[in-house]
Design a protein around this nucleic acid. Structure first.
Lengths: 73, 73
DNA sequence: ATGAAATTATCGAAAAACGATAAAAATATA
DNA sequence: TATATTTTTATCGTTTTTCGATAATTTCAT
């Protein structure tokens, strides 16, 4: 399946919506939405850093590698 | 400090050198070296996926967020 | 000393992020 | 239902960055 972005989980845990997070991460809501919904094909580390900072988490909390043929957690 | 790439650890664990890994990941050794030594500013998910596949690991094993003022593990 | 592995650097092309913006869809709320 | 809020989706243009190809240099083991 590839790399899966699990932003939803941490956002729910921190109780932050797209609007709020977008403000903190300093990225447009539209672009953050793209990332959240697995429409992005790459990330800049600066963006990943800002997200981890805002959500107080690690990249591993957000990015997951799902081998082909396996279902997502 | 930002996002830190810890490729070395997993490579050592899997006993794979740059040359071998580069072949499996299908990326030039030069570019993989850049990523390994924290010179990259972004990653494509396709690349991250190939690395996770080759090293049988998760993004979290490779990428680490180190908050400002903290030392690396 | 010799050879292999790794690092570093440069150039160019292709890919993709991201901002800005707008419209549509979904969701919540009164 | 009606209204407001949030989220999703899309497009355009600019900028950033990857990545291949390549070569030179450095490191490291033998």
């Amino acid at each position: 399946m590839g790399i899966v972005v699990n932003l939803d989980v941490m956002m729910a845990k921190r109780k932050k919506g797209l609007t709020e997070l977008a403000g903190e991460v300093d990225i447009t809501m539209a672009n953050l939405s793209v990332l959240k919904n697995n429409k992005a094909k790459a990330v800049r580390f600066s963006t990943l850093e800002a997200i981890c900072k805002a959500l107080d988490c690690q990249p591993g909390d957000i990015l997951e590698y799902v081998p082909d043929g396996e279902e997502q957690s």
